[in-house]
């Protein structure tokens, strides 16, 4: 009887260990995916377009623009008629990136100074507590 109980207890321990490990792993994966979703947003500059051109992010998110065109582009806050002043990458070329962290909620239009028809918008919303 004692052997049966010990074996049963051992089985339960093994089950809890395996189940617990899975939960732990799930937690890491979710934390990672949530972290990458809320902390960094990637925008590709390709074929003279910002992709995606409209992005909504929580405060504190860092946006990374990567230039995939073989020509200089800029990421400049505002519109060709009215500069915003919050950020301006100046010109950066193929393979280079520009990074900016948005600390304040608001709507940030931006464009390329060399190709004024290239426009995008970042909408920064308050972080969810």
């Amino acid at each position: 009887m004692k052997i049966v109980l010990e074996s049963f207890s051992l089985l339960i321990l093994i089950f809890l260990f395996i189940f617990g490990l899975d939960l732990y792993r799930d937690g890491i994966t979710n934390a990672e995916s949530q972290s990458s979703k809320t902390e960094t947003e990637n925008i590709d500059i390709k074929l003279f377009s910002f992709k995606p051109d409209m992005v909504e992010i929580p405060v504190g998110t860092t946006v990374v623009w990567t230039n995939s065109d073989a020509i200089e582009h800029s990421v400049t806050n505002g519109t060709p008629d009215k500069l915003g002043g919050a950020f301006d990458s100046d010109f950066f070329t193929e393979g280079q990136t520009f990074t900016f962290t948005f600390d304040k909620p608001g709507t940030y239009p931006y464009f390329c100074k060399r190709h004024n028809s290239m426009m995008g918008e970042i909408k920064v919303v308050p972080a969810i507590p």
């Binding site: 390709k46 074929l47 003279f48 995939s68 065109d69 073989a70 020509i71 060399r114 190709h115």
Partner: peptide, 17 residues
């Protein structure tokens, strides 16, 4: 001409800018 070359290169990478 450089801008246009870059656009076509982005679309068709076999075309050098």
């Amino acid at each position: 001409t450089k801008d246009f070359g870059a656009f076509i290169h982005s679309a068709s990478p076999s075309h050098p800018t």
